[in-house]
Write a protein that binds this DNA or RNA. Structure first.
Lengths: 153, 153
DNA sequence: TGGTTGTTGCCATCATCTTGCAACAGATCC
DNA sequence: GGATCTGTTGCAAGATGATGGCAACAACCA
């Protein structure tokens, strides 16, 4: 992790600005949370984001959260990973892919090099996958150590 | 494709039977469609399955389709891949993973060997992924040739 | 500082999936 | 073949996640 959270938010805001979009409280809040989550446990669902925003005193509508997330994805600023029927969101400023625990939904980042062979195989099959993991890239669904312990089936 | 569709349905029904579950019209219908789809374009969503069942004269409730699909997944007979906010379902009798087009939702199957390196990387990161692709395995999200043509962005 | 225009809040709506319960039907035994 | 047991389905309601329209608001530029 070279850049700080503030730097990453700043960079994202500049990209928004260049696309003709405004620097608003709602967007700054969401970007700050995404940057924080990226350095922490991984990605967040729209609901988790909404709750975290409220906890920070940033009251806003759920529809606004969804709208902003969609915009961030359209611009390639954020990317999204489907987990257990819901979407989770993270910053896409550092190329990576994802391994998801289907038990608890926790998420690990995988470097691009680790999934290169799989991307080659997909290309052979006719699907071109972004090597930087945008908008979803490669997702591996499995179980983390803790969930393998608790559900011994 | 070594086994016929009928064989695959039969095998699945035997596994259901062994688990103490009954051989019903609804289950036969769903398994037949999944077996057919696997040899065709890939997987089906619950809605697509429901419509196809109605088209075959097998009237049943959407809730029944969902219930049966969940049972098939619990038994490892079917597996599921999230595509564009919905889940798609396919038979899991032949070990494979998936490459999905985010444009049109079409799906290609990848052999287990093609994604082995990625699964190793996930294990290193702490997530154990089933090499046979159950229940979701490895999913690569990208774009097929046709969608890359139509949306030139 | 005022005007323009993108953005947000609010509300309604849609789609997908889940759950509870009573009626039904497949499987087994006699 | 018929009775019985119990898993299964239909029906209806609802939880959850995501989207769209419109008026009020606020960020940006001149």
């Amino acid at each position: 992790m070279i850049t700080t959270e503030a730097d990453r938010v700043d960079t994202a805001l500049r990209r928004l600005r260049r696309a003709g979009m405004r620097n608003t409280v709602a967007r700054r809040g969401i970007l700050a949370l995404l940057a924080h989550a990226a350095g922490d446990r991984g990605h967040l669902t729209a609901t988790q984001l909404h709750e975290a925003l409220l906890a920070r005193g940033l009251a806003m509508e759920m529809s606004t959260v969804h709208r902003i997330l969609r915009q961030l994805i359209d611009l390639g600023i954020a990317h999204t990973v489907p987990v257990a029927g819901a979407m989770t969101f993270g910053l896409a400023d550092q190329p990576h892919h994802h391994a998801v625990c289907e038990g608890c939904g926790s998420l690990r980042q995988l470097p691009a090099a680790a999934v290169a062979a799989s991307i080659d195989a997909a290309r052979t099959a006719g699907i071109e996958v972004d090597p930087d993991g945008y908008p979803s890239g490669v997702v591996l669904y499995g179980r983390c150590a803790q969930c393998r312990m608790t559900t011994a089936d």
